[in-house]
């Protein structure tokens, strides 16, 4: 388990960039924690760490954003509105698991029982207005 205390959005982004360098194709990063935790800046850092030069935006409306302009593709999901198996199926989630990319899944609470066994769990907790505790659980972390 890895714990990191971030004091700013910049620190979260830098931490994500370093974290990304340990990821391998096929890894699934499941995010837990509500809104305003810094998940979007984390996604920016993660994409940069994977060597991607695409512009990262929130997948809330698209459900999934694909970033492929770099070394390892990143598939960025937002499961906020996904609540049953059929909805999950029709995001193409199971097909993305077969691709050799990294999956970053926001609102993993929604699909917890469908996460693959080896998923890396990333939890965000709010300590005060600007301070966040990030916890990473998974093999090698």
């Amino acid at each position: 388990m890895t714990r990191f205390i971030s004091h700013s959005a910049e620190e979260t982004e830098q931490f994500a960039e370093q974290f990304a360098k340990k990821l391998r194709p096929g890894d699934v990063v499941a995010c837990f924690g509500g809104m305003g935790m810094g998940k979007t800046v984390f996604a920016h850092g993660l994409a940069r760490g994977l060597g991607l030069s695409d512009e990262v935006s929130s997948p809330t409306f698209a459900l999934v954003q694909e970033y492929t302009d770099g070394n390892i593709p990143l598939y960025h999901f937002d499961m906020y509105r996904v609540s049953d198996f059929d909805a999950l199926y029709s995001t193409g989630f199971f097909d993305y698991l077969e691709q050799d990319g990294v999956l970053l899944i926001e609102w993993s609470e929604q699909i917890e029982s469908a996460l693959p066994p080896g998923a890396i769990r990333l939890s965000f907790a709010r300590l005060d207005e600007n301070t966040r505790e990030l916890t990473i659980e998974g093999e090698g972390f």
């Binding site: 049953d84 198996f85 059929d86 609470e109 699909i111």
Partner: peptide, 13 residues
């Protein structure tokens, strides 16, 4: 489609 019971059991809680 999956049976109703299977479909709804996505979130652990």
């Amino acid at each position: 489609r999956l049976p109703q019971a299977e479909r709804e059991l996505l979130a652990k809680q």
